[in-house]
Amino acid sequence: MVENRPFLTVITHIVLVMGVAMIALPIWITFVAASHDEIRMLQAPIPLMPGSHFADNLKQTLFGAGLSGDQTPVWRMLLNSLAMALMISVGKIAISIISAFAIVYFKFPFRMGFFWMIFITLMLPVEVRILPTFEVVANLGLLNSYWGLSIPLIASATATFMFRQVFLTIPDEMLESARIDGAGPMRFFWDILLPLSRTNIAALFVILFIYGWNQYLWPLLITTDTDMTTIVMSIKQMLESAEQSPQWNVIMMTALLAMLPPILVVIGMQKLFVQGLTETDK
């Protein structure tokens, strides 16, 4: 602080607390809705203070039939989401780090051609090539599978650039001494590059896990089998069925469960999260 202004300090805290309240309000209302029983949630105005049915709702949502009998249980959806998020994040990191390694440490024909090809993926988000990508995945027989959910999303220009950047900061002497000691390329990769980029990998993982978990449009298109439904997708179906038989307590509990894993990742690994965000986007 440059100068002491007690009045301004008070204003500062008031504004920040208001900001936090504004940001948290939707979550608070969700939490409250998830803690009342079904009947209370049908009377307007809905409550603003939590009720006593949180545990019941949690049990009903996770292991009960959720909304209606024929629905996939929520724990299964959480598992699907987890599998998709892990496959996307691990896949992206794995294929990006080895291609960055090839591009930085080898001189070979078409090196720059490959680099630009990877760069182009930056300009082709799923949304602009929905239909043809869907056709490709359908022709490969990957509809309704974890592979179909993850592989089409794992090419990553940003991750490749980031690893390239990291490798470029590693001093050349590392490679020289490794080669003098007789290490081949893969030995150098495993024993030197990988340990040196450990924090970068972790930071990237945090960002990509959230990215994978939150996918919506893509799973919506390629999963028709209800067993493959992800938790994020299920909200839309639940809201649709809410028009006939609203069970807001269960719907909002599902929303809460769908948000929780990525939020915990952000809060628990805040430092890595901030590092990952600033590294991949700038």
Binding site: A94, I95, S96, I98, S99, F101, A102, I103, F106, F108, R111, F114, M117, I118, I120, T121, L124, R129, P132, T133, E135, V136, V137, I151, P152, I154, A155, S156, T160
Partner: peptide
């Protein structure tokens, strides 16, 4: 190096550039 870039390039070709 070709083997190393292959996975990324295959995914890019099949799911990005071709579509």
């Amino acid at each position: 190096p070709y083997l190393l870039v292959a996975p990324q390039i295959i995914v890019t070709l099949v799911f990005f550039i071709w579509p």
